[in-house]
């Protein structure tokens, strides 16, 4: 087992996942529903960034910022067109969740209609890995970890140092009371959608940069993102980060684990090596999700 490499892989994956999980947890917290279309917003943004970068020839960094901005507005528009109507007629959170499932299917296939199913890559050359403590890491991966960290700090400051952040926390705690205090909830919700979608785009673009980009990507990453969110405790952005870290670590560790020493009992038996079949890798996040839901549905960090 190569612990250093596992830790590096974990950090990179956690940086990507937590940016997606933050947006999901915010929407879940304020509007009380699980937005199944969240990762598809992120992929939409990543595709916008692809257009700006590869077709318009914009610098990749600028392209992603611009795409985050545009997708932020898309998030607001979809909310105005769909979710706001449902809120107005007092639909149950469950109805909103099912609607988001429909939105996800429609959006994902709309992207396919526009961009086709072919895989896309940004204009980044192949990276030569650097060696740190026997493990390999590319400059891009270091960049991803740094951007991930900076985004979290920015989010923390936003939540605690701005009036928007305070209002958001107030709504989260008690929306009726917040209304009574003359906080314009709808306005705050708009800003929240913008922020959630934009953060998702940064996460989605980082996944696209490090791996691949294609319209179905949103569906392929939704379960790990949900898992990280719930694991961390819904409504708690720091929980989302911690959840992402835990999940990423589990994903990387479980396949490397050899259970044989446990069963051999210090030489009593010799069963060779017992490892989980790699075919079950996709089940890891499902299993963690179910176990967390069963035994600690509030997640690791309770909402403050």
């Amino acid at each position: 087992m190569d612990i250093a490499q596992i830790l590096i892989n974990t950090l990179v994956r956690a940086a990507e996942l937590s940016l997606l999980a933050i947006g999901l947890t915010m929407v879940f917290d304020i509007l009380k529903f699980a937005n199944f279309a969240h990762t598809d917003y992120a992929v939409l943004g990543a595709l916008f960034a692809y257009v700006f970068n590869r077709i318009l020839g914009l610098n990749l960094f600028l392209a992603i910022i611009l795409a985050a901005f545009v997708t932020g507005w898309v998030g607001i528009l979809i909310d105005q067109a769909i979710f706001k109507r449902l809120r107005k007629i007092g639909a149950k959170p469950v109805t909103l969740m099912i609607t988001s499932m429909g939105t996800a299917i429609a959006l994902r296939n709309l992207m396919r209609l526009i961009w086709t199913s072919h895989t896309k890559t940004y204009a980044i050359p192949l990276q030569k890995p650097l060696e740190i403590l026997g493990a390999r890491i590319t400059p891009l991966q270091i960049g991803i970890i740094v951007v991930g960290l900076l985004s979290m700090i920015a989010f923390h400051l936003l939540l605690h140092r701005t009036t928007f952040g305070k209002a958001l926390r107030a709504i989260s705690d008690n929306s009726d009371l917040a209304n009574a205090c003359a906080i314009d909830s709808e306005k705050m919700i708009k800003r929240m959608w913008f922020l959630a979608s934009a953060y998702g785009v940064i996460g989605g673009s980082m996944i696209a940069m490090e791996h691949l980009l294609y319209p179905r990507l949103g569906f392929d990453i939704i379960i790990p993102v949900f898992c990280a969110t719930i694991l961390g405790g819904i409504g708690n952005p720091y929980g989302a980060m911690l959840g992402a870290l835990t999940l990423a670590f589990a994903e990387n560790l479980i396949l490397a684990l050899d259970l044989a020493p446990l069963i051999n009992l210090g030489g009593l038996f010799n069963v060779g090596s017992i490892q989980i079949s790699t075919g079950y890798k996709p089940a890891i996040s499902f299993m963690i999700l179910i176990i967390v839901l069963l035994f600690k549905p509030t997640g690791i960090l309770r909402k403050k």
Partner: peptide
């Protein structure tokens, strides 16, 4: 595109009905 359109319509159908 045709298949993508079909699934898009199913998604939109779900949204429209719920709304």
């Amino acid at each position: 595109s045709m298949a993508a359109l079909r699934m898009t319509i199913i998604g939109v159908l779900i949204i429209l009905f719920l709304l």
